[in-house]
């Protein structure tokens, strides 16, 4: 009864492909990843500069102090952006008119404003203004006998939220909108039969999302999420405008103090290149692993 096809469905469904024809020299030359060689040369050059020229060595020693801030800012901001993105992405396809339009408004606003401007605006306008709201709320609560919530709220002032934290808020709000679009596309890429099957079994919309749609959608968009993580590492350099001491800011300080612009910005560029290349490699390996495992 089970062997109706005569083919064992356990066998991998790979069709025996013809043995590949050996490649010609021209094809090998065309296909060789020469750019990797270029990267290699840059790496060796950088190593040479840093070890032989004391000015480059000094620049590296100074600038690498900022690596910690760059990495933690990116990690915090990306984690928060994932949560915002998932919520806003679900909101974009919600059947609730208010939720759907608010989410779309958020995404469109962020996409229509340069990241640099958003960072200034969120850190220096939006955060102080919402603190003002908290203060007023706190004072109101206190005057209404709810001092235990009101007083701590009223006590929050501009200084209690550092520029580092504001930078993280600004980056996560910005990237939340980008990730929202990725999540939305991922969810919409899952055939509607999946939602119907889940609902027909009695699952609620939320249960169907959580157990059936999102696991498949997120798996589909992992490469895109990885790419945006790499992009955020680079965009985190923008927070230097808030005087957050990431590598860009530290490099600027170093260049301003020593006038060694060549050293400072060469080292800075190579540090970013190193981080993004390593991360891209990780993303690619992850992607390949997923493809290898994917059960059709």
């Amino acid at each position: 009864m089970t062997h109706s096809t005569g083919i064992d469905p356990n066998l991998p469904q790979v069709q025996a492909s013809a043995k590949p024809r050996p490649k010609t020299l021209q094809e090998r030359i065309d296909e060789f990843p020469w750019w990797v060689g270029g990267i290699f040369v840059i790496a060796i050059g950088a190593f040479y500069l840093v070890t032989t020229q004391t000015s480059f060595g000094e620049a590296l020693n100074f600038i690498r102090i900022g690596i910690g801030i760059t990495i933690t800012t990116t990690l915090y901001a990306y984690s928060i952006a994932l949560v915002i993105g998932l919520v806003a992405g679900l909101g974009r396809i919600s059947r609730n008119v208010v939720v759907r339009n608010l989410s779309t408004l958020y995404v469109e606003l962020v996409r229509g404003i340069p990241i640099l401007v958003l960072i200034f605006y969120i850190a220096l306008v939006a955060v102080p203004d919402s603190l003002g709201v908290f203060k007023t709320l706190g004072a109101w609560l206190t005057s209404n006998g709810l001092g235990f919530i009101g007083q701590p709220l009223a006590a929050i002032n501009n200084d209690s939220i550092s520029l580092n934290v504001r930078a993280i808020i600004a980056l996560s709000v910005t990237y939340g909108a980008f990730l929202a679009e990725i999540f939305r596309a991922g969810i919409q890429s899952i055939g509607k039969g999946q939602m119907e099957a889940a609902r027909s079994l009695g699952m609620s919309y939320g249960q169907a999302m959580r157990y059936v749609i999102l696991p498949q959608a997120i798996r589909n968009v992992l490469p895109a999420l990885g790419n945006d993580f790499v992009a955020m590492v680079k965009d985190s350099s923008l927070v230097s405008v808030l005087a957050v001491r990431d590598i860009t800011q530290v490099a600027r300080l170093y260049a301003g103090r020593t006038f060694r612009f060549r050293e400072a910005y060469t080292i800075l560029a190579i540090l970013y290149l190193g981080m993004t290349l390593i991360l891209s490699l990780v993303v690619r390996v992850l992607e390949r692993r997923l493809h290898g495992n994917s059960r059709k």
Binding site: Q194, L201, Q216
Partner: peptide, 17 residues
């Protein structure tokens, strides 16, 4: 109510993951 009604689709709609 849906939990009391099983449905079988033309294209199976099994959960592939």
């Amino acid at each position: 109510i849906r939990a009391e009604i099983g449905m079988v689709f033309q294209l199976f709609n099994l959960f592939p993951h």
